[in-house]
Design a protein around this nucleic acid. Sequence first.
DNA 1: CTGTATCCCAAATGATACTG
DNA 2: CAGTATCATTTGGGATACAG
Lengths: 136, 136
Amino acid sequence: MGTSLKLTHTPLPASPAPDPNHADCRGVASVLSRVGDKWSVFVIMMLGDGPKRFNELKRMINGISQRMLTLTLRGLERDGLVTRTIFPTIPPRVDYELTDLGRGLQQPVMALGQWAIEHQEQIAAARTRFDERNEP
Amino acid sequence: MGTSLKLTHTPLPASPAPDPNHADCRGVASVLSRVGDKWSVFVIMMLGDGPKRFNELKRMINGISQRMLTLTLRGLERDGLVTRTIFPTIPPRVDYELTDLGRGLQQPVMALGQWAIEHQEQIAAARTRFDERNEP
DNA sequence: CTGTATCCCAAATGATACTG
DNA sequence: CAGTATCATTTGGGATACAG
């Protein structure tokens, strides 16, 4: 045989690293995607200190459209994180409130928010550096 | 638009006009939106136990496309959460590794993941109930 | 192996108008 | 007040194909 052309057959990392959470991925993903939805998180935050009405939330969350607030609330309600209570008055009144489940989620979400607040400058700086390095 | 791989400028729609009481909303939102990106979270998880190569990650994260993995890694790198190390071998080898900042983010993210795992059944049940109630 | 460049479709969101 | 309906636009993301 002639000279082998195989120069550096990169040493493949031996073990494919076990994937412990494989089965849970989907369920986790669905929850994370809800958290990732920026509006959902804000709503959960806003509901932290008691029930709120529709327009109350709309005013508190600056920039959200009526449509998005409705959709967000429906999603949270569907997931059992928020309850919707209708008062058949005129004009109508609807209160949204965190369920126990919702209040439970609030904890890890706020931890994340806390981290975000504490490190946003560091991240912003990293972005600037990266952009400068990559876009002369 | 078929977004090229060009690193776009902060694609974060970030909520406009901050609420006086929540001046940090923008920064928080930008971090949360990264966490919300399902791929980013998985990558951060996968990098938890040491550096990984590109295709290694691709294999571990089932369902991600090459394009999305590249974009996700670029985003994480830009935010200073992940480092990218090129080994000029043939064939080329690139390692991705969490930075200290990235490891810090991993904690709250995993807390969230833990919550998600613990409550996914409850949420799934709530969804079923909601759907049954609203779609005869 | 590790990417980049394109094309293209589906989903997310905003704007606006209308309703009980 | 608290939505629903509709339209227009943007964005996300998969599927190639190609390159260093």
